[in-house]
Amino acid sequence: MYELEVNGRIHQVDVDADTPLLWVLRDELGLTGTKYGCGVAACGACTIHIDGNPICSCVTPVSVGVGRRITTIEGLRSQIAAAVQAAWEELDVVQCGYCQSGQIMSAVALLEKKPRPDDADIDVAMGGNLCRCATYQRIRAAIHLAATRLAEPRA
C-alpha cells in the first residue's frame, strides 16, 4: 500500500513497488489526462509535477511519489496554469491533442521558474516533449503569450 497525494487528495493504492506513477494515475486512479507515449522517458507525454517539478511519470516508480505533492493535468489550478491553458486555447495550439497534457505540464513548470523565458529557454524546457503533429511553433507562441499576459498589471 502506498499513500499518495494527487491533486490535493490523498489516495491509498495497492500496487507493486515497481509500478510507474503513470500507471498508478491512469489505471488505479482513473486520471487519464496523463498519457503514455513511449515508456522510456523519451517523449514527455506522461509529464506530471512532483513538488512542482516536471518529471516523466512513465519511469518514476510509485514509491518516489510518496510524501510528495503530485499534480496532473486534471489538478492544475494556479494562475500560471490558467494563463497557459488560456493561451493554448486562444492560439488553437492543439491538433490530435495526445501530447498536449504533457506539453502544458512542462510549459507551466517553465513559467513557474522563469516568468519571461526566451526561445532558448523554451527549447530546453520543452525539448523533452515530442509532438508528432509538430505544433511546436504554436506551443512556443502560446508560452510567450502566457508570459506576456501574466506580466501585465492586473486590473
Binding site: T32, G33, E74, E89, V93, V94, G97, Y98
Partner: peptide, 21 residues
C-alpha cells in the same frame, strides 16, 4: 472559428481509445 476540440485537449478530459475504461 475556434477549434471545437481545443478545451478538452487542454484540460486532459478528451477521450482517446487509450482512455476507455
Amino acid at each position: 472559428v475556434k477549434r471545437k476540440d481545443s478545451r478538452a485537449k487542454i484540460d486532459g478530459s478528451a477521450q482517446f481509445t487509450q482512455d476507455v475504461r
